[in-house]
């Protein structure tokens, strides 16, 4: 986080998890801090803070971005989906359910980012091989699982919808 004595403010308008949001925010606020501190959406995690680990992955107009690497003001007029926006009325997405069924979760700190990356992968590709999943997932670091059961989960959803 930067420290600025003469803070500039900006009237940000965007859509977060389907809901329109208007906030006056400091221009130097990272998207990650906006989501966590201003909106209380703490499912988005900070791990490295330098765009290497993918724990703060969110979907910005449907594309994965690291929320630690962009300023909130850059998302003006756009649409953001966080992990909290995936399941509606207690219904998990097929990928969230697959993460449970395939034992893909251990400590869980990387999981929101993993799932959002997986969701985009599934949206972008009709079919996915394990090798493609591994390559595509390489922007998301997990220290517990060894990735195998995460790959299993994404592969199973890709296969089941064929």
């Amino acid at each position: 986080m930067l420290s600025v004595s003469n803070t500039d403010y900006f009237d940000l308008e965007l859509t977060v998890n389907g809901t329109p949001v208007r906030r006056r925010i400091p221009t130097h606020l990272r998207l990650l801090d906006f989501l966590r501190e201003e909106l209380g959406l703490t499912g988005t995690k900070e791990v490295c803070g330098e765009g290497e680990c993918g724990a703060c992955t969110v979907l910005l107009d449907g594309l994965t971005v690291d929320a630690c690497l962009i300023f909130a003001v850059e998302t003006h007029g756009m649409e953001i989906t966080t992990i909290e926006g995936l399941s509606r009325n207690g219904n998990l997405t097929p990928l969230q359910q697959a993460f449970i069924d395939h034992h893909s979760v251990q400590c869980g700190f990387c999981i929101p980012g993993m799932i959002l990356s997986g969701e985009q992968m599934l949206r972008d590709h009709e079919q996915l091989t394990r090798e493609e999943i591994r390559q595509d997932l390489s922007g998301n670091i997990c220290r517990c699982t060894g990735y195998q059961k995460i790959v299993d989960a994404i592969e199973s959803v890709s296969r089941d919808r064929r």
Partner: peptide
């Protein structure tokens, strides 16, 4: 056995310390 703590972790509901 499916993990009893998995549901909160796949939805982002689990509150870690910073949360």
């Amino acid at each position: 056995q499916n993990r009893i703590d998995a549901a909160g972790k796949v939805t982002g509901e689990t509150k870690f310390l910073a949360d």
